[in-house]
């Protein structure tokens, strides 16, 4: 029996008085693209950060490929490639240097390092720009650079937090294309979050709808739409029906996007 890529059992997390995650159960099968969906403030990032062991979680709650995150932190991290919500490439380093750093931090053997670095950059369509400082990149290029950083260690699980937030539609399309290509090529498991329902509907094998710290509905986009009983419905309609209203907390969404833009501005 193979273990699931990710198994979360009744995850709770509080920041002081704020309950960010309030009892999430989740299983991600190996090889699938799983989307954690929900408006800003739903608890998606917190869930992701618990899975990567950035936030302290008791033993027995989260397993990655059968390894308990609380006990086998380093072993788990060797299996994960992680791209946080903010645009976090280092603007004062070139594309190659950004990716090489992560090759070193993941102990990619010296003999393979160069090849792996250029392979990752190539997969993300950044071969030409590889020698330039990342601060000269566009937002979409920075996102792809970050994907290259995450892929250089050939992770089994790719974790992407809002991979397309703050990008223009063309850049978004290109990021999704690359994600799909990587999965097709490597069979890697992808766990991502997004609050763009439309993108998730197109790109995810399975989704979980998250709202106020709870993971309500789980299934393929098709299943969830069928369940609603309106064939022309979209995932967004499903979400509205589930959360009993609109994609609320728009204010917060704006704030998130602004923060991301600021990071993009800082980078160049």
């Amino acid at each position: 029996m193979t273990s699931p890529a990710v198994e979360v059992r009744d995850l709770h997390y509080k920041f002081g008085e704020t309950t960010a995650v309030d009892g999430v159960d989740l299983t991600v099968a190996p090889g699938e693209i799983f989307g954690l969906l929900g408006p800003n403030g739903a608890g998606k990032t917190t869930t992701i950060r618990a899975i990567t062991a950035l936030l302290p979680v008791p033993a027995g709650v989260i397993e990655v490929f059968g390894l308990d995150v609380a006990k086998r932190r380093m072993a788990v991290r060797r299996l994960i490639g992680y791209v946080p919500q903010q645009l976090s490439a280092d603007g004062s380093l070139s594309g190659v240097e950004n990716v090489s750093l992560f090759a070193r931090l993941f102990d990619v053997p010296r003999g393979q390092r160069k090849a792996k670095v250029s392979e990752s950059l190539e997969m993300m369509g950044l071969t030409e720009a590889a020698g330039r400082l990342a601060k000269t990149y566009s937002g979409g290029m920075i996102r792809r650079l970050e994907l290259a950083q995450a892929l250089v260690s050939s992770p089994q699980l790719l974790i992407l937090d809002e991979p397309t937030i703050g990008l223009d539609p063309i850049a978004r399309g290109s990021v999704w294309e690359r994600i799909a290509a990587v999965r097709a090529e490597t069979g890697m498991t992808v766990l991502l979050t997004t609050h763009y329902m439309e993108e998730a509907e197109q790109s995810c094998d399975r989704v979980g709808l998250m709202h106020r710290g709870l993971l309500g509905k789980l299934g393929t986009p098709r299943e969830l739409i069928d369940e609603l009983g309106r064939p022309e419905a979209t995932l967004e309609d499903v979400f509205r029906a589930y959360s009993g209203g609109s994609l609320d907390e728009e204010q917060k969404g704006l704030r998130d996007v602004r923060a991301t833009r600021r990071t993009a501005g800082r980078l160049g």
């Binding site: 991290r77 791209v83 946080p84 903010q86 931090l105």
Partner: peptide, 15 residues
Amino acid sequence: RDAGVLAKLMVTPTP
């Protein structure tokens, strides 16, 4: 930390 760089470094196998 504000830019997410620290989180990314901390998710590498680096104590």
